[in-house]
Amino acid sequence: MDGEDHLRDLSRELRAAAARLDARRAALGRNALVWWQGEAAEHYQQRVALRVTGLHALSREMEEAARLADHVAALMAALQERG
């Protein structure tokens, strides 16, 4: 496998990881525990919101890295073609 293939694989892996993180983020958001009230519950809700935001940012960064890997792979392919 050459460098371009490695980059393409890495890109696919990053995109798949981002999709799985999105699914996990949704699962976390569903743990609303609406009956739970009071200070501890508010603290929990804030922490869940933070983690949901964190997972969202992480999956976006993974997609960005995947795009970057695609660009570099394309550049590598172009350079190889030019010989």
């Binding site: 050459d2 970057l68 350079l79």
Partner: peptide, 28 residues
């Protein structure tokens, strides 16, 4: 790992791109 030695001579843009990919994934 490039299939031909020409990659080595590709120059700064590719080198910079590979470094960015590496850094991004390590950070992730």
């Amino acid at each position: 790992l490039g299939s031909s030695g020409t990659v080595v001579a590709a120059g700064a843009p590719l080198r910079w791109g590979l470094l960015r990919v590496q850094a991004a994934v390590i950070r992730l």
